[in-house]
Computed example of a mutant assay.
Amino acid sequence: MYNILKLNKIAAIGTDRLGANYNCVDECDAPEGILVRSAAMHDMELPESLLAVARAGAGVNNIPLDKCAEKGICVFNTPGANANAVKELVLCGMLLASRKVAQGIAWNKTLADDAGCLKTVEKGKSQFVGPEIMGKTLGVVGMGAIGILVANAALALGMKVIGYDPFLSEAGKAKLEGGVIIVDTLEDIYADSDYITLHLPLNDGTRGMINNETIGKMKDGVRILNFARDGLVKSEDIIAALGSGKMAAYVTDFATQDLLTVDGVVAIPHLGASTPESEDNCAVMAADEIKDYLENGNIKNSVNFPNIAKDKTADKRVTVFGKGIEDAVKAIAADAAVATRGDYTYAIIDGADAEAFKAIDGVIRVREL
């Protein structure tokens, strides 16, 4: 029996896939697995029993990846499972950035006691005038699952679309419609885009990337959409650009306190993946990943372990994880399936004795399945 701790509500369509050999609970002192969405894990004590964490979503900033790797805990995410939900909200965000719909609705509510509100509306509606998106240029920064869908959808709406991603794979390129142009630098995005949408992770290289310097390289009246991570922008620089007119609008899915009352900001309460379809997709993928790892040792969509899978060829299976152990593992088992990620190596060996691998220098965890 595997104990699975749920740190957030996880759709039953996912947890039901685990089967009778799993005990999914909201409290547990010694879980073998954790299912999580947004709950913060950085200050959490990770029990020795813990083998895997599956994040029902793409971003993993709430999980201590290095700490997990050091303890031999495999962390998964669910890339693409919520991509369509986020794409739809990004398209909504572009319209909200242009047409001042949210501001107009809020103003209408102030007219509840105005008997002649229809006439008042006709006189006052000009303050909410905004441009159409057709024919404008959208710059997509980050061409992962979400960025690709956004680019293709914007193209279908009659926009010109340019994208930037130095890590765009050939498989990703194949999913893009022919009219999407991939540019070589972020400066190309900044210089040519009427709208810029961010779809990239938050790390040391991207933190605060939208700031006074980069905004200065953009078109006057640029509209920026951030449905990725709040830390990608410097809020004080966004506020200054909106105040000067350099930026026409900032639409974000992260309602930080300093932006809530700023003119030109549309702050959405983190609704990007908040659809029943998205929550179901993420729960199913997370459950399948953690089940295959716990039962078979296979790894798909890990963010801190190498990805690897192997069909079973014997009743007994051993998995080995550690630093700098590849040669030692192969010396014991020449037929081992081995994969590396950075300093770490993970191996799957069928029909082997687990004890032989525990003595290898650098081994962090050995499992016998």
Rank of each mutant, 00 (worst) to 15 (best):
K9L: 04
D114E: 12
E88A: 09
I13N: 02
A240L: 04
C74A: 15
M134K: 15
I4Q: 03
E132Q: 07
T78I: 12
L155E: 14
A54R: 10
D230M: 08
E70K: 15
A20L: 12
A56F: 11
P276H: 01
K6Q: 09
A102F: 03
T206K: 03
F254Q: 02
D16R: 13
I210F: 15
L5W: 03
G245P: 10
D26N: 13
A97F: 03
Y346A: 06
A30E: 15
K125I: 14
G245L: 12
A12E: 15
C28E: 11
N108W: 00
C92T: 07
I238S: 12
A287V: 01
K234Y: 12
C24Y: 10
E368S: 15
N21A: 15
V329E: 03
K125P: 09
A69S: 14
N212M: 11
I63C: 09
I290D: 11
I325M: 03
G172A: 14
I34Y: 00
K312N: 10
Y250V: 11
P201F: 09
A228H: 08
N152P: 10
A191M: 04
V141M: 06
A52W: 10
A249V: 08
Y190G: 03
D230Q: 12
N108F: 01
E48V: 15
C74M: 13
G147R: 02
A286G: 07
I290W: 11
T110Q: 04
A339S: 05
H270M: 11
C68E: 01
K136I: 04
